Amino acid sequence: MMCQAAFVYSNEFLNYHFHSDHPFNQKRVLLTKDLLEKTHLLSADHIIKPRMATEDELALIHDRAYINAVKKAGTENLTEDEGIEYGIGTEDTPVFPNMHEASSYLVGGTLSAVDSVLQGKFNHALNLGGGLHHGFRRRASGFCIYNDGAIAIKYIREKYDLKVMYVDTDAHHGDGVQWAFYDDPHVCTLSIHETGRYLFPGTGQINERGIKEGHGYSFNLPIDAFTEDESFIDVYESAFRQIIDYFRPDVILTQNGADAHAYDPLTHLCATMESFERIPMLAHELAHQYCDGRWIALGGGGYDMWRVVPRAWAQIWNVMKTGEIQEGALSSEWLHQWQKKSPVKLPETWHDDKQIVPNIPRKADITEKNAKVLESALKYAKNQQIHP
């Protein structure tokens, strides 16, 4: 299925840069874009430039005092005590020059993606610079300053009055987005993530179901450490299919962190590219089945920026553009250009050899435990008169 798709990009995305040793590096977006261009699947005709989000748009989610603090931090006028109040200047989210402007471009990129789809110009849109799902109303958190996903959902609700399903497959719980819409029955959030027992932010339990009118519209599937492809895909597909059939959204917004991969240095999951091929394929299928194709996808986590993120994120675009994943060898031109800069040996194919996954003696136990998590999440939903 060939679809009209937009790829949001500007070199401004690279300005969201904490410091050279920080694990969050937006060079991932450039590596992905270059891989797609050298594979001849992305051209200038597909690219739309992001705009800078306005302060009024940021204030759809964030407190104006917080926005002002971010602006002050980016000009070195924020004191250390002020920074602590707002989560700015921490080890995770340190200060960098012009951080307000850089962050606003990421948000504006997501809003540009939203408008391009909801104004009927494209079926799908991809903003890999976005997906900063840990940002809160008055606090930066987990590498995230402004929460572009949450702002986009509020923007959709106010400008287009549509029901939104948010699906987050980052290894870290999509806490900032969940809490922003915890009482909203027009927004359904689904987060599939590594259990918070050993991983930031420690939230995302099954019983986090929403409050007031929003009760029953927040779904969490905390999977066990060392989960492999088969179990990850089973949980993802089963939950997504059943929940979307219950909620019947008008538009799908996905956050596509690539940190569930076995190579990722910050998490404990053991997925391979098989999972990252299936994630966009199902989103694409369900967007056409339920939402007339309206699907906006964002980036997110992913800290092996050489071996994992470019392939995982490129497959999202491949599916958006062609309805299929790419297979076989990676572009030799891309490999030649980037191998000399990479500190690790780059993979030569789109797929992974399953031997990259370490032997997990508890595989059967982990799979069984994840199946029970899935059953419990959906059983709890049914007890609240939700019938997927």
Rank of each mutant, 00 (worst) to 15 (best):
residue 1 M to L: 11
residue 2 M to Q: 11
residue 4 Q to H: 13
residue 5 A to C: 04
residue 5 A to D: 01
residue 8 V to G: 09
residue 10 S to L: 05
residue 11 N to F: 04
residue 19 H to M: 01
residue 19 H to E: 06
residue 25 N to I: 00
residue 26 Q to I: 00
residue 28 R to S: 12
residue 29 V to P: 12
residue 36 L to G: 08
residue 40 H to L: 11
residue 40 H to W: 08
residue 41 L to M: 09
residue 43 S to C: 01
residue 48 I to G: 02
residue 49 K to T: 10
residue 49 K to I: 02
residue 56 D to P: 01
residue 57 E to C: 08
residue 58 L to I: 11
residue 58 L to R: 10
residue 62 H to P: 13
residue 64 R to D: 07
residue 64 R to P: 03
residue 74 G to K: 04
residue 77 N to P: 07
residue 78 L to R: 06
residue 78 L to E: 08
residue 86 Y to E: 10
residue 88 I to K: 12
residue 92 D to M: 15
residue 94 P to Q: 07
residue 101 E to P: 00
residue 103 S to N: 14
residue 106 L to A: 05
residue 108 G to P: 08
residue 111 L to P: 11
residue 114 V to T: 04
residue 116 S to N: 10
residue 117 V to S: 04
residue 119 Q to C: 06
residue 119 Q to W: 01
residue 125 A to K: 02
residue 130 G to C: 12
residue 131 G to A: 07
residue 133 H to L: 06
residue 135 G to P: 10
residue 141 S to I: 02
residue 142 G to Y: 04
residue 143 F to G: 08
residue 143 F to W: 11
residue 145 I to F: 09
residue 148 D to E: 02
residue 154 K to G: 02
residue 154 K to S: 12
residue 155 Y to M: 12
residue 155 Y to D: 10
residue 158 E to R: 11
residue 160 Y to K: 04
residue 161 D to P: 05
residue 162 L to V: 03
residue 167 V to S: 07
residue 168 D to K: 06
residue 169 T to W: 13
residue 170 D to I: 09
residue 173 H to Y: 15
residue 173 H to G: 14
residue 174 G to W: 09
residue 176 G to Q: 14
residue 179 W to K: 13
residue 187 V to S: 05
residue 192 I to G: 01
residue 194 E to S: 05
residue 197 R to P: 02
residue 198 Y to L: 14
residue 200 F to W: 13
residue 202 G to N: 13
residue 202 G to Y: 11
residue 204 G to M: 05
residue 209 R to K: 09
residue 213 E to L: 10
residue 215 H to N: 12
residue 217 Y to N: 13
residue 218 S to G: 08
residue 220 N to R: 12
residue 221 L to G: 07
residue 224 D to P: 00
residue 225 A to I: 14
residue 235 V to R: 00
residue 240 F to R: 01
residue 240 F to N: 02
residue 241 R to Y: 14
residue 242 Q to G: 07
residue 242 Q to S: 11
residue 243 I to Y: 05
residue 247 F to L: 01
residue 249 P to A: 00
residue 249 P to K: 00
residue 260 A to S: 15
residue 261 H to W: 04
residue 263 Y to A: 10
residue 267 T to H: 05
residue 272 T to A: 11
residue 278 R to A: 07
residue 278 R to Y: 03
residue 279 I to R: 12
residue 280 P to R: 04
residue 281 M to D: 00
residue 282 L to C: 04
residue 283 A to G: 10
residue 283 A to Y: 11
residue 284 H to P: 02
residue 289 Q to L: 13
residue 290 Y to V: 03
residue 291 C to L: 11
residue 295 W to L: 15
residue 295 W to K: 03
residue 297 A to R: 01
residue 297 A to Q: 08
residue 299 G to N: 03
residue 307 R to P: 05
residue 309 V to Q: 13
residue 313 W to G: 09
residue 313 W to Y: 08
residue 314 A to F: 12
residue 315 Q to F: 11
residue 317 W to D: 06
residue 319 V to W: 09
residue 327 E to G: 09
residue 327 E to T: 15
residue 328 G to Y: 12
residue 329 A to V: 02
residue 330 L to T: 02
residue 343 P to C: 00
residue 343 P to S: 00
residue 345 K to A: 15
residue 348 E to H: 04
residue 351 H to P: 00
residue 351 H to D: 05
residue 357 V to I: 13
residue 358 P to E: 03
residue 358 P to G: 03
residue 359 N to M: 06
residue 360 I to A: 04
residue 360 I to E: 04
residue 360 I to H: 06
residue 361 P to N: 07
residue 363 K to S: 11
residue 367 T to I: 00
residue 376 S to L: 02
residue 378 L to T: 10
residue 379 K to L: 06
residue 381 A to H: 06
residue 387 H to K: 05
residue 388 P to Y: 15
